[in-house]
Computed example of a mutant assay.
Amino acid sequence: MLFAFLCTDKPGHLNVRMETRPAHLEHLNKLNAEGTLKMAGPFLDDEGKPNGSLVIVEAADMEAARTIAEADPYYLAGLFEKVEVKPYNWVFNKPAE
Rank of each mutant, 00 (worst) to 15 (best):
R17M: 06
V91P: 00
F80R: 02
L14T: 02
Y74G: 07
W90P: 01
G48P: 07
L37N: 01
H24T: 07
F5Q: 03
G35M: 04
N32F: 14
E84M: 10
Y88H: 08
F5V: 02
K82H: 13
D45Q: 09
D45G: 06
L37P: 01
F5Y: 10
K94F: 03
A64F: 01
E84A: 13
N93E: 13
G41D: 04
P42A: 12
N89M: 15
A4W: 00
A96T: 10
A96S: 13
P11A: 09
V91I: 15
I68C: 11
L37W: 06
A23R: 11
M39Y: 07
E63Y: 03
P22V: 10
F5M: 12
L76H: 00
F5H: 06
M39T: 11
N89G: 13
N93Q: 14
A77S: 11
V55P: 03
A96Y: 00
E34M: 15
P95A: 03
E97A: 15
G52S: 01
H27N: 13
F92L: 13
V91M: 12
V57G: 00
P22R: 02
E70L: 12
L2F: 12
Y74Q: 05
K38Q: 05
Y74N: 05
A60I: 12
G41I: 13
K30A: 15
E58D: 13
A69I: 10
L79Q: 04
K82A: 15
A64I: 09
A59N: 00
M18F: 10
A23L: 14
L14W: 03
E34P: 08
M62L: 15
G12W: 05
L44C: 09
L79M: 05
D61W: 07
A4T: 09
C7A: 14
L14V: 11
F80M: 10
A69S: 13
L79A: 07
A60N: 12
T8P: 00
N89Y: 12
L28R: 02
E70G: 11
R21I: 05
G78C: 05
E81H: 10
P50V: 07
T8V: 15
P50C: 09
V85A: 04
P42L: 05
A69R: 02
D46K: 12
E34H: 07
P50N: 03
Y88G: 09
A96Q: 10
A4N: 01
P50E: 03
L44D: 00
F92P: 00
V16E: 01
A65Y: 06
A23F: 09
M18L: 15
M18S: 09
E19T: 11
D9C: 10
T36L: 10
A4I: 14
C7D: 11
E19F: 07
M18P: 00
E19S: 14
K30P: 06
A77M: 08
G52L: 06
E70I: 04
A40D: 01
I56V: 15
L54I: 14
H24L: 08
H13K: 14
M1R: 09
V83W: 04
L79H: 04
I56E: 00
S53I: 05
D61K: 02
A64V: 12
P87M: 07
N29H: 09
G12R: 05
V55N: 00
E26L: 15
N29K: 13
L25P: 01
A40V: 08
L31W: 04
H27Q: 04
L2H: 10
E26W: 05
E84W: 04
A96I: 12
P22S: 08
Y88C: 14
F43H: 06
K86E: 10
K49H: 13
V83N: 04
